[in-house]
Amino acid sequence: MRKQLPKIYIALLLIMLYSPILIIIVFSFTEAKVLGNWTGFSFKLYTSLFQGGVHHSLTSALWNTLIIGLIAAFVSMILGTVAAIGIYNLKTRTRSAVQLVNNIPILNPDIITAISLFLLFVSLGITQGYTTVILAHITFCTPYVVLSVYPRLQRMNENLYEAALDLGATPFYALRKILLPELKPGMISGFILAFTLSIDDFVVTLFTIGNEGLETLSTYIYADARKGGLTPELRPLSAIIFITVLVLLLVINQRTAKKRL
């Protein structure tokens, strides 16, 4: 019995973490408006989620979230990678200064980042909307890309690049054939991290989205929850998001595990 105790403890914690999600998934298969009422098994919420119509605003919020996430993650990946290469070649003192500033958005609570960017946009008189949200997301995503690309540069053998140049490669060719393959894993994990941070963000988005009616998933859920009743279609949507994330992560995990062997 004593030997089983640790296992039971871990199991209990996991049950605590997963029971709310399980409830959402289970009740996504019933039509009831109020969560917790079971009115028989049905796929109706799933079909109405994809038919749009009344829930058009939910689907458009979902699209906005994905588009903003992809653009922000892509720009962050490029900006962060170029920056990491530049920072790596800076003189020590400048380098530590830039790295310090780079850490600010990571360490700052998101509400401070949000308020500071809000003040920036209003004092410049910029209308808030798509552009400001994307810029704000790039601001808090890029530091993570820098952090995930930078160690690859440190690990890299600089002589390789030199050798390529000596062997007659143009700087651009050497960059493409030597540097890029070295940095690629860092860039990819930076991109994924940036994307997940972006689609998960709520506070920074809320402060930079303006009031032109643009909604992302987070702000939609927030507005919905404040009104009291939750759109029942959020249940199947959460279930889908959760299962997708679960599968994706398990696949990624399996892949990296295999690579390491």
Binding site: L17, Y18, P20, I21, I23, I24, F27, L35, G36, T196, I199, D200, F202, L217, S218, I221, Y222, A225, L230, L234, S238, I241, F242, V245, L246, L249
Partner: peptide
């Protein structure tokens, strides 16, 4: 893993 689900959804799940 649950960290990858939007925290608002997670919070609402707790309410649920």
């Amino acid at each position: 893993l649950p960290m990858w689900v939007n925290f608002l959804i997670r919070t609402l799940a707790t309410v649920a």
